[in-house]
Amino acid sequence: MKEFFAYAVMALPDLLQGTVVTLQLTAGALVIGLAIGLPLSLLRVYGPKLIQPFCTAYLTVFRGTPLLVQLFVVYYGLPEIGLSFSRMAAAFITLGCNSGAYQCEYFRGAIQAVSRDQMKAARAIGMSRFQGIRHIILPQALRLVIPAWSNELIAMVKYTAIVFLIAVPDLMNKAKILSSQNFAPIQTYVLVALIYLVLVGFLSLVLHGIQRKLAVPGLDAGMDGR
């Protein structure tokens, strides 16, 4: 045990450096995912029939394949057709597009959970369809989506753990280097697991706090993601 603590003290600075990168990746992926997922969900619900197959194709590809395949296609495959990305950029793009597909489904679920009568009432006071979506449907959907979105945030922290396979200097990458330098894989990965545990625990607490703050009576229907 004493040995482990000594090792932990030695390894922590490096690991925390990697943790910062992990958090940056998470935040970046969520923002990109939001920028893709929210408009895509609106297209899914309100968009013309013609573009539905394209939306479906996007969702099927990103939800139907492992993140690892997506990462390798983007980082190793796309340069073949002239699209080269840096390690960091490839990680952001892959995680972002992947999160976009999941966020689209969460938003779609939330939008469809808002009763159709709300739109009717909005139209009855003279709002256009667009105004109805913007001022009546979306504000409610965004509240309903918070639990699912919180889950997505937590999931994304964990999903970033594979980008070390294209040598992005995240937490896992640092762990890999440390473990081979010190021949201490078990200690290293247990330490990594503890760091993820603390991260996820802390984020869950914060998200729960936010959920309680934003709650509107009668609008907290359970819209849990996976």
Binding site: Q118, K120, A121, A122, I125, G126, I136, Q140, G218
Partner: peptide, 16 residues
Amino acid sequence: RRQMGMVFQEFNLFNH
């Protein structure tokens, strides 16, 4: 529509 008020059977108040 903005010149005509409508009251619904199910109220349809904006929940948020």
